[in-house]
C-alpha cells in the first residue's frame, strides 16, 4: 500500500471516529470511548506501519499481523479494516445486528476478513499473538505480530503468564501496545485496581518498554511504532505504552470512563459529529 501523508492519515482518523459513533449509535449498544482514543493507533498501524494484505489469509504467512485483545474496541477495528479494504465499508451498518459478520465482539466463524481469532473475554490476545509469532519464528518469517491490550485488561492474570513466556522465549517479533487511558468500565484504573508502575512491571518481566506519551498525536504514534519496529529482532519482546485519552476527539466524551460502554443518543451524536469532519464519506 502506498504511504499516505500525515494530513491524509488524519482525515482517516476523523472518519474512523465518525464511523465508531454512528455504529454504536445505530444499535444503541457498544463501546465508543476506547476506540475513539485509539483512532490514531489504528490508522497508523493499518495505513502506515503494517505490511499486510487485505486479500485475507487466515495463516498470515509473510504478513505483519494485528490482534485486538481488548475486543470491545471492535467498532474501531471494523472501521479501520473496512477503510483499508478488507470488506465493503457499507457493511459497517450491520454492526451488532442479527446475521452480521460484525459481531459485538470480534469473532471468526462469520469469516469476516481481518479477524483471526475471537476476543472479548479479556486477557487472551497476547497469548494468541505469541503463538502466531512462535510459528513465524519456526518458519523463518521475519514479519511482526502486533497486539493491542487495554490497561484495565492487564488486571487479568493470563497477561502476565504470557509476558513471562515472551521474555523467556525471546519473542522479539512481537510488539504489544497497551492503550494506557487510565479508565475502565467501573471508573479510573487507579481507583478500581491500581496498575502502579506499568513501565517497571513490564521491564521487570524482561520486556523492552517504550512510551508513546502523545497517543492521540498521529506523528507521535507513528514515531512510537517505528521505534518499536526498530527494536524487533534484538532478543526481547517490545511493549509500547500508548498514553491515550478515552473518548478523544469529542469534547464531552474525552477523559472519562462514562463513554466506555455507553452509546450517544441522537442529540449527542449530532453534537459529536459536528466536531468530526466527514472526510471519506460516511458509510
Amino acid at each position: 500500500m502506498k504511504k499516505q501523508s500525515l494530513p491524509e492519515l488524519q482525515k482517516i482518523c476523523s472518519q474512523l471516529r465518525r464511523d465508531v459513533l454512528r455504529m454504536v449509535h445505530a444499535v444503541q449498544s457498544g463501546h465508543p470511548g476506547a476506540p475513539l482514543g485509539c483512532a490514531e493507533y489504528f490508522v497508523a498501524l493499518y495505513f502506515d506501519q503494517l505490511h499486510h494484505n487485505p486479500d485475507f489469509q487466515m495463516n498470515g504467512k509473510g504478513e505483519d499481523l494485528f490482534f485486538l485483545s481488548n475486543g470491545h474496541l471492535s467498532a474501531g477495528w471494523y472501521s479501520v479494516l473496512a477503510r483499508s479494504g478488507y470488506f465493503p465499508v457499507e457493511e459497517l451498518k450491520t454492526f451488532r445486528k442479527l446475521n452480521s459478520r460484525l459481531q459485538g465482539h470480534p469473532a471468526t466463524h462469520e469469516h469476516l476478513p481481518g479477524i483471526r481469532i475471537a476476543s472479548g473475554s479479556l486477557g487472551q490476545g497476547l497469548s494468541v499473538a505469541l503463538g502466531v509469532a512462535q510459528t513465524k519464528k519456526l518458519e523463518k518469517d521475519s514479519s511482526v505480530v502486533h497486539v493491542l491490550m487495554g490497561d484495565g485488561e492487564l488486571q487479568e492474570g493470563q497477561v502476565w503468564e504470557a509476558a513471562m513466556y515472551a521474555a523467556h522465549y525471546g519473542m522479539d517479533n512481537v510488539i504489544a501496545t497497551v492503550d494506557y487511558n487510565g479508565q475502565q468500565i467501573d471508573g479510573p484504573t487507579e481507583k478500581i485496581m491500581d496498575l502502579k508502575n506499568l513501565k517497571a512491571k513490564w521491564e521487570a518481566f524482561g520486556w523492552e518498554v517504550i512510551e508513546t506519551k502523545e497517543g492521540n498525536d498521529l506523528a507521535s504514534v507513528i514515531a512510537g511504532l517505528e521505534k518499536a519496529k526498530s527494536l524487533t529482532g534484538k532478543g526481547k519482546p517490545i511493549l509500547n505504552l500508548l498514553y491515550t485519552e478515552m473518548g478523544y476527539g469529542v469534547d464531552f466524551m474525552v477523559g472519562t470512563h462514562k463513554w466506555h460502554g455507553s452509546p450517544p443518543n441522537d442529540e449527542q451524536l449530532a453534537l459529536a459529529l459536528g466536531q468530526l469532519e466527514e472526510t471519506l464519506g460516511d458509510y
Binding site: 481469532i117 487472551q124 497476547l126 497469548s127 494468541v128 505469541l130 503463538g131 502466531v132 512462535q134
Partner: peptide, 12 residues
C-alpha cells in the same frame, strides 16, 4: 491459560 492461547495462535 497462556498455553491454550499459544496453541490457538500456532493453529491459526
Amino acid at each position: 491459560a497462556n498455553m491454550i492461547g499459544l496453541a490457538a495462535g500456532m493453529a491459526l
